[in-house]
Every structure is written in structure tokens, then in C-alpha cells.
Design a protein around this nucleic acid. Structure first.
Lengths: 145, 145
DNA sequence: GTCAGTGCAAAGCTTTTGCAGCGCG
DNA sequence: CGCGCTGCAAAAGCTTTGCACTGAC
């Protein structure tokens, strides 16, 4: 079952109707898989002739986030979204300060340590964000500038 | 040497003049130590009769962030700031979904794992953010709502 | 005296909200 | 055939910028 199918099932299960705008947002997120801002979703849909109102993009995203079907990450003060794997698997991001390149990683050890930290704090941690910032391999090989 | 003194020295070393507004922002950050938004800085200064224009708060913060004297963390789409320890020591944050309570933690193991991840990606990681979200001990003891 | 620093007001972005109409179920 | 979904436009934050003025060096 694809993520899009999973999401559609969840939406229907929680009593939401199907509509053109949300379907388009869902399909785009499923195709892209990586971090997209609301504006990027709007622009990409418009570019492929499947225009959707920006407000509807925000509403679709908000709903999907509430159902934990997408994961939200703030990048430079802008919210970006990506499909959340229903199995609970997830990854984190490293962003290059210089060229903006985005790298994705996952690390079981990291997850384990974060779990321990949450337990130590007495927090029932439902979610966590980890973002690394620095120079990617290409950029750090070049003189700073 | 206090953080405020350290920051003043850095500012002067990098050719910046001293001015009323930035001094007030610096002093407040030094006193509070924890995450503050630009608006909160502005309000708290006004409340103590040391009013500073909101634009000046933003300009002071931006400069301090560029010099790595403060650390920026995005909380719910709003940028918050706190003094950055010159020794490189730093902590991370856990935020309660329900009551908004903020907890602070540090964990050498976490830092170690993040270092390994950065190395594996070939990133020269200069900075990283970790935010845990969930229910704090008090809130998770209560029925959801 | 020069030019960084400052306050105010206006503009820019991202995100949310109000409202009328359409269409899924 | 009701109510949720949608688009548009207006509004509501947060943040940046333009400009004239003040004050540090």
C-alpha cells in the first residue's frame, strides 16, 4: 500500500470527504517525498496545470499534519512538509549553509539516545526534530565564501 | 567573564559601535538565559521602562546570531533566541504539546552520536538543533484533552 | 565630522480566516 | 440535499527595509 493510499484511507476513516484540492496536494507529496513548503506545493501544482488555491494547500497540510500523515520541519523560518511513513520509520535532515543542499539520514543509535533523553525528562515524546547545519562535502572542500 | 562581557568584546572586536538599544537587548538576554522571541524581548524591555524599538531588537538579534553569540531556535514558527555559551557547551529543548512548558537538557551521548552522523555524511557540521515534542510529566499524567 | 546605530512606519512573507458557492456522500 | 471542501480576498502575525536623525568614536 502506498503512502497516498494509506493517507486516503485515514482521511476517509476519520470522516473526511474527498475533494479535488486535497487529492492534488496528496498526490504531489507522494510523488516528491521530500520537504516542500506550502508555496512550493502551490507553485508546482500550478506549473502542471493542476492549480489549487494556496489556502487549500494550507488547509490540506494542516489536516494531514494533525492526522500525523505528514511531518513538519521548519527550515529558515518556513514550514516544510513531507510524507510520514506509517510504519513509524523516519529520517532527519542536514542542510548546507552555503549551497542549500539537503541531505537525509537515519540513525537507530540517534533514535535510541533521543528515547532515553525523553524518558529521563519524564516526557511522553511523540515527535522530534533534528536538523544539522553546516557545510556539505562539496562546499567544505572549497575555500570559504 | 560573563556572557554579556564576552559578547561586548566580540562586538567591539568586529568593529561595531556600542549603542543603547543593543546594550539593552544584550543585558536582557544575559539576565534571562532562556529562549526569548523578538516580541518578548521588546515587551520585557518596555515593561521595565527601557523601551527599545522592535526593529532594533531584530537588528541586534540578527547581528548576534551572525557572530554566533546567540543561538536561534524556531518554536511554532516563531524564532526564539538564547545566549550561546562561548565554550561551545550547549543544551537542547523539549516542549510540551499541551501546556507549552519548556524543558532543557544536555546529553554528551547525543552530541557524540550527532558528531558521528555528521562525519558519516561528510558534512562539516557547525550547528544542530534538536527539539523534542510531546506531553510533559504533569500533562501525560492527566487524561488527554 | 562621519557613519553605525536607532525609532518609526511601511512593506514583505508566511499563514490564517471569512464567506459564498460547489459537489461529495 | 446537507455539510464539508474550495477559491478568493482580506486579515493577522512575524520579520525586514527605507529613511531621517542621533550619537559613538
Amino acid at each position: 500500500m502506498t503512502w497516498v493510499e494509506h493517507a486516503q484511507r485515514e482521511l476517509s476513516r476519520t470522516g473526511h470527504r474527498s475533494g479535488g484540492a486535497r487529492e492534488e496536494v496528496l498526490a504531489l507529496l507522494g510523488r516528491q517525498g521530500c520537504l516542500l513548503s506550502a508555496q512550493e506545493i502551490h507553485d508546482q501544482l500550478r506549473a502542471t496545470g493542476r492549480s489549487v488555491g494556496l489556502a487549500s494547500v494550507y488547509r490540506a497540510i494542516e489536516l494531514l499534519a494533525n492526522l500525523k500523515l505528514v511531518h513538519r520541519v521548519d527550515v529558515d523560518g518556513t514550514a516544510c512538509y513531507e510524507p510520514a511513513d506509517p510504519s513509524g520509520d523516519h529520517h532527519h535532515h542536514a542542510i548546507c549553509d552555503r549551497c542549500g543542499k539537503l541531505a537525509v539520514f537515519e540513525d537507530p543509535e540517534l533514535e535510541r539516545v533521543l528515547g532515553l533523553v525523553g524518558a529521563r525528562l519524564g516526557y511522553d515524546v511523540g515527535d522530534h526534530d533534528v536538523v544539522l547545519r553546516g557545510a556539505c562535502q562539496d562546499c567544505s572542500a572549497q575555500p570559504a565564501g
